[in-house]
């Protein structure tokens, strides 16, 4: 097992529980995927397999939905996920400088996970906080009006 992946029996068990909670019907597929992603940090292949069994729909259709939405991941990610808003409003309001500083401090590029598994760096489209850009999202915490010199303080909060 590599660092960060979820054991297959646990993935199946969580998938089973979540399907039962929501009711195993097709229109619950995206809420089910979102819930599992929240609990496990990503969607392991075994979980997708279990959803396919529970909902009685082809695996291809489960993967097709799972791979479409940006808040869902089919790959393991770091303990903390940083999302930087790359849309035009943040870009114009100083986002470009924040993005360069963020990549520099983490020594990561977009989509990469740090070797110690602490961080995954991603870009995101507009988060709807544009009067207070630049905006970054760390896990569930949103940071507004971010400047490059605030980054080290923000990052230090997450171990």
């Amino acid at each position: 097992m590599t660092v960060g992946t979820i054991a297959s029996d646990k993935a199946r068990q969580v998938a089973q529980e979540v399907c039962q909670q929501h009711g195993a019907t097709r229109d619950e597929l995206i809420p089910i995927l979102s819930d599992i992603n929240r609990q496990l940090g990503y969607l392991p292949a075994e979980a997708l397999d279990e959803i396919s069994t529970q909902l009685k729909i082809p695996k291809s259709q489960v993967l097709s939905a799972a791979s479409f939405y940006s808040m869902l991941s089919t790959q393991p990610r770091g303990r903390h996920v940083i999302k930087f808003c790359e849309s035009a409003p943040c870009h114009v309001q100083g986002g470009r400088e924040v993005w360069l500083a963020l990549q520099d401090q983490l020594q990561l590029k977009s989509g990469e996970t740090s070797p110690d598994d602490r961080w995954t760096l991603e870009t995101t489209s507009c988060l709807g906080q544009c009067a207070d850009g630049p905006v970054i999202l760390v896990d569930e915490d949103i940071y507004l009006n971010v400047t490059p010199d605030q980054l080290s303080g923000i990052l230090a909060k997450y171990k």
Partner: peptide
Amino acid sequence: VHSGAGAYICGEETALIESIEGKRG
């Protein structure tokens, strides 16, 4: 209440409907 899962295109009404039905948007 139906939560999206991150996709600008789901603001397009027929993509939104597909998404509620449990499909790609």
